[in-house]
Design a protein around this nucleic acid. Structure first.
Length: 405
RNA sequence: GGGUAGGUACCAGAGUGGCCAAAUGGGGCAGACUGUAAAUCUGCUGGCUUACGCCUUCGGAGGUUCGAAUCCUUCCCUACCCA
């Protein structure tokens, strides 16, 4: 029932950043072939930020491949670690979550993750199950298995330490807790982004220290955000969400820098090796226009999450809106409880959340970014009659039909 | 426990009694241009106001002063050195 060793290794190797140690994985696979037992593939999920984007999908797609090869995907929701608070120490304000919140977020995580993962051969676990029942003695025993110097090897710890930035002791506990998860789960392979390498290796160390067979680690590249500079993340606003509408997905993909096109094709659309190579060579020798490559990529991404038809439709709408500068297919329409039929446009913009404040609305008008029914508004004090529906446009992408309630 | 340096807007960072809603850079938003939401150039970037102007903001709380981001008291937080 399992594909052969070589077939498995080829697929597993594709697109990975690092796979350590490769021979050990081959041995594990060989054994699983012999015993017909699937490998335990672990992926840790952070339940504090339950909005998944294309960056998460890179690792999830790799997980999916393991599932397709017949192995067991174990999604570990870090509800316990989420309860303690912030794992990076960067934002002191990030609140520690309650158990209920982490469970809720975990549920939402699964729903989104199954856009990529198969529901078969999928196991869901919460690390509060074992971390929550550890005694202080157990914790001390755990911490005794690792040294401060080992901990400071981690790039971001040593950087922060050298830069004189604060590091809380509990942050040292995170890699240990995460590593202990691997002990508890008897993970064979743990997946993660390249930024997780250290944590994954801690899992390997700890498994050995607890007398278990150490896991292999597999890291996937971190996908750059649509700005092409920072890694994709929700807080930076440079992300494409798995649940974004086709229009948003398409538009955001079209905004990536040209240098990222094939990367998005490979990791965002998870296109096959051959197709990616074909695109790359086309871009290189000039037979493929970057715009067309981007359109192809955007359509593939939309199609992956919303179906072929949606990809085509998103493309056509994009053409209309940006190339021909026409209106989008569907414009949301709202009835606002206005005080009067004739209202200053500034007030309406703020009320409709098209601008965060009246001052900002005024600035937008002064900058020439607002139009009503296609007419640019030039006067800050301008009013409009909202007894019938009016089309307000702010910037290039915000459209709203508004009338008085 | 002792000492030193710090905490300024989304971020970094200047400002040491009025000229400060606070330089500069980054980021963000808008406009022009573009295959593009890229690059480049231009403008804007606390809130309320047609406007004059008013209100809130420089770690927290008090105080001095006609006037405080700037001086004083006290508290909280961070890093480094010594123990």
């Amino acid at each position: 029932m399992f594909p052969t060793l070589n077939e498995q290794m080829d697929l597993i190797r594709s697109g990975v950043h690092e796979l350590l140690p490769e021979e050990e994985l081959a041995q594990k696979i060989e054994r699983s072939l012999k015993t017909q037992k699937p490998l335990h593939i672990k992926l840790g999920c952070d339940p504090s930020r339950p909005d998944l984007h294309l960056g998460h999908a890179v690792v999830l797609s790799k997980m999916r491949q393991f599932q397709d090869l017949g192995h067991l995907a174990i999604l570990l929701i870090g509800d316990f670690t989420g309860m303690i608070g912030d794992p990076t120490g960067r934002s002191k304000t990030r609140p520690a979550l309650t158990l209920e919140e982490t469970r809720e977020n975990g549920q939402s995580y699964i729903e989104q993750a199954t856009h990529v993962l198969s529901k078969d051969r999928l196991k869901l676990v919460y690390n509060s199950e074992w971390l929550g029942t550890m005694s202080f003695t157990d914790v001390v025993a755990l911490t005794a298995k690792f040294t401060v110097a080992q901990m400071l090897e981690r790039d971001d710890f040593s950087k922060r330490y050298k830069a004189g930035e604060p590091i809380s002791i509990h942050e040292f506990l995170y890699p240990l807790a995460q590593g202990y998860d691997s002990v508890a789960l008897e993970a064979d392979v743990e997946l993660g982004g390249t930024d997780q390498k250290f944590n994954l290796l801690v899992g390997r160390e700890l498994q050995r220290a607890y007398g278990k067979e150490p896991q292999c680690i597999l890291t996937m590249p971190i996908l750059e955000g649509t700005d092409g500079v920072e890694k994709m993340s929700k807080s930076l606003g440079n992300y494409i969400g798995l649940t974004d509408s086709p229009r948003e997905m398409f538009g955001k993909t079209m905004s990536i820098p040209d240098t990222l096109i094939s990367r998005y094709f490979r990791y965002g659309a998870f296109a096959l090796d051959a197709a990616v190579k074909q695109m790359e060579s086309g871009l290189q020798d000039g037979t493929l226009h970057p715009r067309n490559a981007k359109v192809q990529t955007a359509m593939a991404i939309v199609a992956r999450y919303h179906g072929e038809a949606a990809g085509q439709a998103a493309f056509e709408e994009f053409e209309r809106m940006f190339v021909k500068k026409d209106l989008p297919d569907e414009i949301e329409s709202v009835a606002l409880p206005l005080e009067a039929v004739v209202m200053p446009i500034v007030d309406v913009l703020a009320l409709a959340n098209l601008a965060p404040s009246k001052s900002e609305a005024r600035r937008l008008i002064q900058g020439g970014g607002v139009s009503v029914d296609g007419e640019r508004v030039s006067d800050v004090a301008a009013t409009a009659d909202f007894s019938t529906e009016r089309l307000l446009k702010v910037g290039k992408r915000k459209f709203l039909k508004i009338r008085k309630d």
